[in-house]
Computed example of a mutant assay.
Amino acid sequence: MFSHHCTACDRTQLIFTSQVTAMTNDELGITVSFTCWCGSEQTTLTGKGARVARALVAA
Rank of each mutant, 00 (worst) to 15 (best):
T12M: 14
T17N: 09
T12Y: 03
T31Q: 05
A8L: 08
A50T: 06
D10V: 11
V52T: 02
T17K: 07
A53N: 04
L45V: 14
T24N: 08
A55P: 00
A8H: 09
V57R: 08
W37H: 08
V57H: 06
F16I: 06
L14S: 07
I15P: 01
T17Q: 04
D10E: 15
T46R: 14
T12Q: 12
T31H: 06
G39Y: 13
L28F: 05
M1R: 07
S33Q: 10
C36F: 15
R54I: 10
F2S: 11
M23P: 00
L14C: 03
T43Q: 12
V32S: 03
T35Q: 13
T21V: 14
T7W: 08
H4Q: 06
L28G: 07
C38V: 15
H4I: 10
L45Y: 04
S40T: 08
L28N: 12
R54H: 02
E27S: 11
T44P: 00
T12D: 11
N25R: 12
T35P: 01
G39K: 06
G47S: 05
R11P: 00
H4D: 04
A22P: 00
K48G: 05
S18L: 02
H5Y: 15
T7R: 13
L28D: 14
T24W: 01
C38E: 11
A50I: 11
S40V: 07
M23R: 01
I30D: 00
F34Y: 10
T43A: 09
R51I: 14
Q42W: 10
A8C: 12
V32P: 01
T31C: 03
Q42C: 15
T35Y: 03
D10N: 15
T31E: 08
F16T: 13
G39W: 13
S33K: 03
D26P: 02
D10T: 13
L14W: 07
S33Y: 06
R11W: 03
A22E: 03
V20Q: 02
T46Y: 05
C6D: 04
A50P: 01
V52S: 00
H5T: 15
G29T: 09
V20A: 05
C9N: 09
G49R: 00
A59H: 04
Q42N: 14
A58V: 11
V57F: 06
A55E: 05
E27Q: 05
T7K: 14
S33H: 07
M23N: 00
R11A: 12
V20W: 04
C36M: 09
T46V: 14
E27T: 12
S40I: 03
T12A: 15
E41D: 09
F16H: 13
G39V: 15
R54W: 00
T21Y: 09
T24R: 10
T43S: 09
V32N: 02
L28W: 01
F16M: 06
Q13D: 08
T7F: 14
